[in-house]
Amino acid sequence: MKKLRKALAIVLSMSMVFGLVGCGSSNDTTTSAAGATTAAAAETTAASEAGSTMVETAANQVGTEDCVIGLSILSMAAEFLIAMVQGAQDKADELGVELIVRDCNVNNQTQVDQILDMINQGVSCIIVEPWDSEGISVAIDAATEAGIPVFTVDTSGNSKDIKCWVASDNMEMGRMAGEYIAEYLKEKNGSYSGKVVNLMASLTSTSGTNRSAGFHEVIDQYPDIQIVEQNADLEVEKALNTMTDILQANDDIDAVWCSGDNNAIGVIQAIDAANRYYPQGEDDHILVVSADGGMEILDNIRKGKCDACISQQPITMGADAVQMAYDYVVNKVEPKSDVQYVGLFNITTENIDSKELAEFGLWAEQVR
């Protein structure tokens, strides 16, 4: 316990430095803290060595009855994350381990504080869904110093100490959306041309940046496709207001990549409010493509207001993250790779009632 407190004290000192330098890398933060004095550098090295020993000891000694997993997520207000926590809790119950869930309410400092508190409680391992991939590094460093392994789920952080990231392939999600929109434009306009909106998700998270990057990877191949790009942070009201401004400035929008269900809900509301909704198949129809696969979007796909949604599997994601963490600390099983992806499915108006989609699963219909 003395070693744990010592490691925590060192990293809290690092956190103060981090706050001064802003969003620097974890390496920069460590260097700044260690460079304060020679004694501090020696102490940091000693704590790091102790942390490595503690990780090995934890993996060797923790049994099922002693395994406590901490989980910090972005927001329990999101249907997708409710599903992910459900999957995590069901798996924890199945394995007979304790799961401590904390909601950071999309605030990086709150999330850092939650993880430091979990470290103080002496959890066996930590699973985190980072709001800020850079800002979370100080908390991951703290856990590592205390000998507590860290896994990420859905989004990830910029740290070499993360054992594994359990997620959807967000680059692939962006590619799937880009390919679907490109083929729609070719069919509608006779060529890969037109104007599309990239309504981005948060650019501080890996999922947001990767979905946009994957989309660009496809669309940028076609110089005659014009992109209008804004960030709506997966907030319905912000997406509504942003899309309203875009519609007022552009008479010729062909399609919108929404990067998440909340963005899509705001876009659909904006299109309706602007009297710009035209049924599928009409020349002025604006194609709307979402991501995630929540119930409201499924309803809009059936109504023809949303054309497609790249669906994830959050229940599976949460369960897989807990299983992997359990295997690491109890069964001493190392993750096979740095990232483990769960499946994706492009739900459209044509396949929403198909056997193939039923086999993949509609997670929104499984949320309790």
Rank of each mutant, 00 (worst) to 15 (best):
G318S: 08
N210F: 03
E235T: 00
V367L: 05
V17D: 14
Y184H: 07
V218E: 10
N351K: 01
G293R: 03
L71H: 05
P279F: 12
Y192I: 14
L362A: 05
T38C: 04
G70I: 01
V236S: 01
Q269V: 10
A239L: 02
D28A: 03
N210K: 11
I225Q: 02
E94L: 10
F80R: 08
A58F: 12
S75G: 06
P279N: 11
D141F: 01
D283K: 09
E229F: 04
I162D: 03
A270C: 04
I227Q: 03
I246A: 02
D320Y: 02
N105R: 14
L116W: 04
W363V: 13
D307L: 01
Q121M: 14
L203Q: 11
V267R: 13
A143G: 14
Q248T: 08
G19Q: 12
L8E: 11
A182Q: 09
T38A: 15
G361I: 10
A273T: 15
S205M: 06
Y184M: 10
I140E: 02
V17P: 00
K163M: 14
M76Y: 11
V150W: 07
C67W: 12
I82Y: 00
V289N: 13
K195I: 06
N263K: 06
G361E: 07
A92L: 01
F80D: 02
A167E: 12
I227T: 11
M14Q: 03
G87D: 10
N263R: 03
T57E: 10
K336D: 13
V329F: 02
Q109F: 10
T155L: 00
I140R: 01
C104R: 02
S26I: 00
F18Q: 15
A213M: 10
T37K: 03
M324F: 04
I265K: 03
S159W: 05
N158E: 12
E356K: 03
I127A: 02
